[in-house]
């Protein structure tokens, strides 16, 4: 939404006043306060005065600013007769420092996802790779192409191991698990059709083909097959993904 969609200034002022009062009046740690905060943020994030820069990490700085604002709103004090001007000034005061952080590019390194770690043993980081693949500017239409590029370079070890394990079923754990007197409806065939096949078959489709009640099929999958696969997935997931 751009600033031209905003109501006239006097209406913005009265909306801000009303929504800020609702936040302040609500008990701390209550649903009432969370709702009031959501409404206030909804108006504040549309204010045209909020600082903006053309940097790929601007939204990171902005998200940190909303988190800060929601935790510190009780400290805010209006000093002039324009609540909009005072709020924007107060928010920009914090946003300015977060924007400084991103220009000094320290922010990405502090993230817990180790996106700055080297990947594929090629001396590149995920963040480098994403910039290369253009994933920063990714949209719904270019997403598949970018995923294809990323997948070509990944070893996809966990997914490959799980697929191989399902196909091999070395201890016949999956094949031996089926609803009573329905040995054809075993977990290996279901795992293939639901977890591996691309696109997967729907439960409705499988239930019709195998002539088994839909609910029986779904609960067999949930209660018997999925736990076996989950245990195995956890097993593979805990192994080091990359040899070093």
């Amino acid at each position: 939404m751009n600033s031209s969609d905003l109501p006239p200034p006097c209406e913005v002022e009265s909306q801000l006043r009303q929504k800020l009062a609702a936040v302040w009046a609500a008990p701390l740690q209550s649903a009432q306060r969370a709702k009031a905060m959501s409404r206030l943020l909804g108006v504040v994030q549309q204010l045209p005065g909020i600082g903006r820069v053309n940097h790929q990490d601007y939204l990171l700085a902005l998200n940190q600013t909303w988190e800060w604002m929601s935790r510190n709103i009780d400290e805010f004090q209006a000093s002039t007769d324009s609540l909009e001007r005072d709020l924007v000034k107060w928010i920009n005061g914090y946003l300015y420092w977060r924007i400084r952080d991103i220009y000094q590019s320290t922010t990405a390194k502090q993230q817990p996802m180790s996106l700055d770690e080297e990947v594929f043993d090629r001396g590149e980081t995920y963040l480098d790779l994403l910039s290369e693949a253009g994933a920063i500017g990714v949209n719904l239409y270019t997403l598949d192409a970018q995923i294809a590029v990323l997948q070509q370079q990944a070893d996809r070890k966990i997914a490959t191991q799980i697929e191989a394990w399902i196909e091999l079923d070395p201890e016949r754990q999956l094949q031996n698990c089926h609803p009573r007197s329905r040995s054809d409806c075993h977990c290996q065939i279901l795992s293939y059709r639901i977890a591996i096949k691309d696109p997967p078959d729907s439960f409705t489709q499988i239930a019709t083909e195998l002539d088994i009640p839909y609910q029986t099929l779904v609960s067999h999958w949930k209660r018997s097959c999925l736990p076996i696969l989950q245990a195995q997935a956890r097993n593979f997931g805990y192994e080091p993904v990359k040899d070093s």
Binding site: D57, L59, L115, L130, A135, I147, A148, A154, R156, A159
Partner: peptide, 20 residues
Amino acid sequence: DLDRIAHATAAKFAAEQRSI
């Protein structure tokens, strides 16, 4: 807003899957 860390995490997970 979906920031770059959200996209980078999504890309990291998507890269590890078997199909597009």
